[in-house]
C-alpha cells in the first residue's frame, strides 16, 4: 500500500469577486508526517484547510483520501479520519472540559445517547486518558472551558481532536492566539502526541522559527500558489525571503 494518506490534486478555489485563493495546488500528505504551511496573510492557508475539510467547495481539482476521491456528497469517508484544531479553539463555552473533549466523538454516538447526554463508558474513560496525555490532569475536568487560559483551552482543543483516533489533524494557526512560550509548548504537544499515535498533521503557522522544529516538511504558499515544498531541514533563508517579500 502506498504511503500517501491525503492527495490534493490540481485544486483551484475562486471566491466571489474573482479572488483566486488557490491556484492549481498539488500536495501529497504521507502517513505519520507533520507538515507546516507558511505564507503571508491572504496566501490561502485557511482556504486550503477549509477545502480539505469540505467547509468550502472547490472550483477545480480532486482530493483523495487513501486513494478515494471525495467530493461534496461523500465527505463521510473522511469525517472519522480527520480532526481539526482551531486558532480560536472553537470550544463550546458554558460546557465542561470533559464534555468538550467527548464532543470529538459526536458523530459516532447514537442519537438517543446524545439526546439524554449518556455517553459510553469507554468514551469517558478515553477522554480521561487523553486529559492526562495533553497535560490537563491537575485541573478539575468539570470546570467550564471559558474559565481556562488560552493555552489550556488549546489543550482541550487538541484532546477533542485526539479522542476520535484520527489519521490526520488539520490545524489552522493553532498557536496564533498564544504567547511564544505557550505556543512552543502547544506545538511540542501536537508533535509528541501525533508521533505517538501515528497521526499526520497539516498545520498553518506564522512563525517560521517554530515551523523548523515542529514540522517534518514545510510548504510555502503565496497568493494561492505553492512556492516550495521541502523537508524542514532543507529550508533555506532564501526560501523564506522569497515567501515574505
Amino acid at each position: 500500500m502506498s504511503n500517501t494518506l491525503l492527495k490534493i490534486e490540481s485544486v483551484c478555489k475562486i471566491y466571489p469577486g474573482n479572488i483566486l485563493a488557490l491556484n492549481n495546488v498539488n500536495i501529497n500528505i504521507n502517513n505519520n508526517e507533520i507538515i507546516a504551511i507558511l505564507g503571508p496573510s491572504g496566501s490561502g492557508k485557511s482556504t486550503l484547510i477549509r477545502t480539505i475539510l469540505g467547509l468550502t467547495s472547490l472550483n477545480k481539482g480532486n482530493i483523495y483520501f487513501r486513494s478515494k476521491n471525495y467530493k461534496d456528497n461523500n465527505f463521510n469517508i473522511i469525517r472519522n479520519s480527520i480532526a481539526t484544531i482551531y486558532q480560536n479553539f472553537n470550544l463550546v463555552s458554558r460546557s465542561s472540559i470533559i464534555k468538550n473533549i467527548i464532543l470529538g466523538d459526536i458523530a459516532k454516538v447514537s442519537s438517543w445517547r446524545l439526546l439524554f447526554n449518556v455517553w459510553p463508558k469507554e468514551t469517558q474513560d478515553k477522554a480521561k486518558d487523553i486529559i492526562e496525555e495533553v497535560g490537563l490532569n491537575d485541573i478539575d475536568y468539570n470546570k467550564r472551558v471559558e474559565n481556562l487560559s488560552g493555552g489550556q483551552q488549546q489543550r482541550v482543543g487538541i484532546a477533542r481532536a485526539l479522542i476520535g483516533s484520527p489519521d490526520i489533524i488539520l490545524a489552522d494557526e493553532p498557536v496564533s492566539n498564544l504567547d511564544p512560550q505557550t505556543a512552543k509548548d502547544i506545538l511540542n504537544l501536537i508533535r509528541k502526541t501525533a508521533k505517538k499515535n501515528n497521526i499526520s498533521v497539516l498545520c498553518s503557522l506564522h512563525q517560521t522559527n517554530f515551523a523548523k522544529t515542529f514540522a517534518d516538511r514545510i510548504i510555502g504558499m503565496k497568493e494561492g500558489n505553492i512556492l516550495f515544498d521541502k523537508p524542514a531541514k532543507k529550508i533555506l533563508k532564501f526560501d523564506l525571503n522569497k515567501l515574505y517579500k
Binding site: 470550544l91 463550546v92 459526536i106
Partner: peptide
C-alpha cells in the same frame, strides 16, 4: 459560529 464549525467538521448533523 466557531464551535458549530468544529462539530460540523466532525461530521455532526444539524440537530446535533
Amino acid at each position: 459560529q466557531g464551535p458549530q464549525d468544529a462539530l460540523k467538521a466532525l461530521g455532526s448533523s444539524r440537530w446535533r
